[in-house]
């Protein structure tokens, strides 16, 4: 009985705080994405047109993000029947967008406005004893370029 009460409290806490944090995070992601839209992140390996540019600089952005207790519980239930695990989808979406934003913020600090050859990498950092994924790390990296004509202006 006590176990059930504890579980219910943990689920309620996870649900409440988890939802709150996720909403806030999405708000900040959307705001910053609009702010940083002028920095173009391009996944192609080589700049489309040869251009005079400053030395390229490697920029990285990473974030470790964790899912809340309620969602982890849902995911565990979901794994009984199989199918789409929505609770983890939003976790990874947030992590990727956050990592890209941090990379762009670094590029902005360097004065670059283009990032090429973007690679994304995901790693699950901590697994608990039952093998459930607790948190994921997403790393975004690319090469920031500063066009020369931009600097002269």
């Amino acid at each position: 009985m006590v176990d059930l009460i504890v579980l219910a409290i943990l689920l309620a806490l996870g649900y409440g705080f988890g939802r709150h944090f996720e909403k806030q995070h999405y708000k900040s992601i959307i705001r910053r994405e609009a702010e940083l839209r002028h920095i173009t992140a391009i996944a192609s390996r080589i700049p489309p047109a040869p251009q005079l540019a400053d030395d390229p600089i490697l920029v990285t952005g990473s974030v470790v993000i964790s899912v809340d207790y309620f969602k982890r519980f849902l995911a565990a239930l979901r794994s009984l029947v199989g199918g789409k695990v929505v609770s983890y989808e939003s976790l990874l979406d947030r992590a990727r967008r956050e990592a890209i934003l941090r990379m762009k913020e670094k590029a902005r600090r360097l004065g670059a406005n283009q990032i090429f050859n973007i690679k994304l990498e995901t790693a699950s950092i901590s697994k608990n004893a039952r093998g459930n994924i607790g948190s994921v790390e997403v790393l975004a990296y690319g090469t920031a370029l500063k066009p020369l004509q931009q600097q002269e202006r």
């Binding site: 705080f17 944090f21 995070h25 990473s62 964790s66 207790y69 976790l91 956050e98």
Partner: peptide, 20 residues
Amino acid sequence: LASFKNLFGGELRGYTELLH
């Protein structure tokens, strides 16, 4: 701290810094 954060969800700053 991270295991507490695991309950509520959200960014684990300590880990982010460590990995960075």
